[in-house]
């Protein structure tokens, strides 16, 4: 992991013209390493989540009383579908960036990436945006496939897009933090299984809050995954309280910014990736 090679010069310091982000460099890391790698394993990375989402939809179709409505004109299936898509989006963005970082660290490839003249910000964006992209591709395909069950739905595309992108970005950044921190798969899967999955499942993906006892509802309302799913669903179906969705959107944006700054700091320090 920490090869005994020559010391890697810190890129930001030495006589380099001031630049914010060099697009080509980010693109190489983003596309060649991130997206291409993801697509090469498409049965696992793309088809797998699609199949499991479809299974959930099938199970719900069969298990629910047909025609059960959540709100006027909104069937339970239509309620669940965008929630599932948003959940998968978050999960993939998170897992993807963790996979990239942990594999690169374990195989020692991270040294090659660190050797390249990339600033910490470029590193962060290269890894992070690839995961965002992959998450978005999968969730768009899932949304399309789910129209088989729900019929076409789109209420306010802007909301869907906003919540989709901010959510993917937030969890890609959290993924960077976890990926940098994890030395073993155990550590990653601990966060994945005991934090991300519970947050996702107990977030109102599958049920409305009125199923929860009133004195416990705040627990759900404080869950960022609930904000994501709520906003995303509002964009798709129009279900939800617009003013609440607005506040949740702002909160998410702030959370994403904080996670981004944290990721940037860790990258700049070379936390667990530089000797």
């Amino acid at each position: 992991m920490t090869g005994a090679g020559p010391e890697i010069p810190t890129v930001s310091g030495i006589d380099q013209p001031i630049r914010v982000v060099a697009l080509l460099r980010v693109w190489t890391l983003f596309y060649r390493r991130g997206v291409v790698r993801f697509m090469r394993f498409w049965t696992e990375s793309l088809l797998g989540p699609m199949i499991s989402t479809m299974l959930f939809m099938t199970v719900f179709t069969l298990a629910l009383d047909s025609g059960q409505q959540i709100a006027p004109g909104l069937t339970a299936l239509q309620f669940v579908a965008p929630g599932l898509a948003a959940f998968v989006l978050v999960q993939i963005s998170f897992q993807n960036v963790c996979f990239m970082l942990i594999i690169d660290k374990q195989e020692g490839v991270i040294a090659d990436v660190l050797m390249a003249p990339l600033t910490p910000l470029e590193l962060l964006l290269g890894y992070g945006l690839a995961a965002v992209m992959n998450g978005l591709v999968v969730s768009v395909l899932i949304m399309l496939a789910m129209t088989v069950f729900t019929g076409p739905m789109l209420y306010a595309a802007g909301y869907t897009l906003f919540f989709g992108i901010v959510a993917a970005f937030l969890f890609a950044m959290i993924g960077v933090l976890v990926g940098l921190w994890s030395e073993k798969w155990d550590q990653f899967s601990m966060i994945d299984n005991f934090l991300v999955l519970p947050l996702g499942l107990l977030s109102g993906t599958f049920f409305t809050l009125d199923r929860i006892p009133v004195n416990l509802q705040w627990l759900f309302e404080a869950n960022p995954m609930f904000w994501i799913i709520n906003g995303f669903r509002y964009g798709v179906t129009g279900y939800g309280d617009p003013s609440m969705v607005l506040w949740q959107g702002i909160a998410l944006l702030i959370a994403a910014l904080v996670a981004f700054l944290a990721g940037w700091t860790l990258m700049a320090r070379g936390y667990k990736i530089k000797a």
Partner: peptide, 11 residues
């Protein structure tokens, strides 16, 4: 256990 909770709540 999460699945149990979720499906029991939803269905």
């Amino acid at each position: 256990l999460l699945f149990l909770a979720v499906f029991a709540l939803a269905l």
